[in-house]
Nucleic acid binder design. Structure first.
Lengths: 142, 142
DNA sequence: CAGGATCCGTTTCGATACTG
DNA sequence: CAGTATCGAAACGGATCCTG
């Protein structure tokens, strides 16, 4: 057991988080899953800012290893793969929303319609909504 | 006018934010400035997870270019440099705190004493406190 | 001695071509 | 459609050197 090569035994949760999602692409993938309805590999490629296929593949693997994303065969398609956020992944919503809020205030960028307002008005309710939407639709059972 | 080479004309604020702080080190530097009382170059080196000097220097430049950090000579020391967060940098607090909260819940890491609790209990008040502490101490002017 | 630049080997990224 | 293989470019990281 080699315990996966930790850098320095840091006990800071910020650093722990950044070890998982602290790169240029991971949170964009989570964003697409959370707000853009992305489910298939090609969705990530077409959306966003043009991530390279190898980078996308490696990030998806890493996100799965981190327990943020799951993947499964599309029961309808057979050759397609469906990616979905885990509960752990869904709970990144506050991070994404605060990042979005900050970007809207200080950098360029238009927020997706109404989302930020809903978040600022009633975070708890909005979070509950997101959880419901993303976790209760595992395979059209809802 | 070349407008600084934007990748793809993205209007997503999350992406805009990640272009500035979406790397392994930037938010750790902001964290040190915000919660660990770091002000000098050596503070960042000693703290944290052992950032290399060249990386630290380049990140500090980038953070200054992004308007998140300022630097000035230490009036007491003369040879020392004091780094400080701008208002824009201080407003990254919610991002850091949500990142910290997520890390505490799902990754390893102990939160710094009481901070997360204060944040969860009353975000507005806690933010106001942070703003006051970090922005009202520019040079002991009061 | 603090702040930071330079050199250099290693790792990661990223674009494209290609495969099942 | 969903990925690998390849390969050049960039970033990282450590050590050392420079500057005031």
């Amino acid at each position: 057991m080699i315990a996966k090569r930790q850098k320095r035994r840091s006990t800071c949760p910020i650093n722990a988080s950044l070890e998982v999602v602290g790169d240029r692409w991971s949170l964009l993938i989570v964003r697409d899953l959370m707000f853009a309805g992305a489910r298939a590999y090609k969705d990530f490629l077409s959306s966003e800012e043009g991530i390279a296929t190898n980078i996308l593949a490696s990030r998806l693997v890493k996100l799965q290893e981190s327990g943020i994303v799951t993947s499964e065969r599309d029961p309808q398609d057979g050759r397609g793969v469906i990616y979905r956020l885990t509960a752990k992944g869904v709970e990144l919503a506050p991070v994404l929303l605060e990042l979005s809020r900050w970007g809207t205030r200080f950098e360029e960028g238009e927020p997706p319609g109404g989302i930020l307002q809903a978040w600022e008005t009633n975070p708890q309710a909005f979070l509950a909504e997101i959880r419901k939407q993303l976790l209760d639709v595992p395979r059209s059972t809802g």
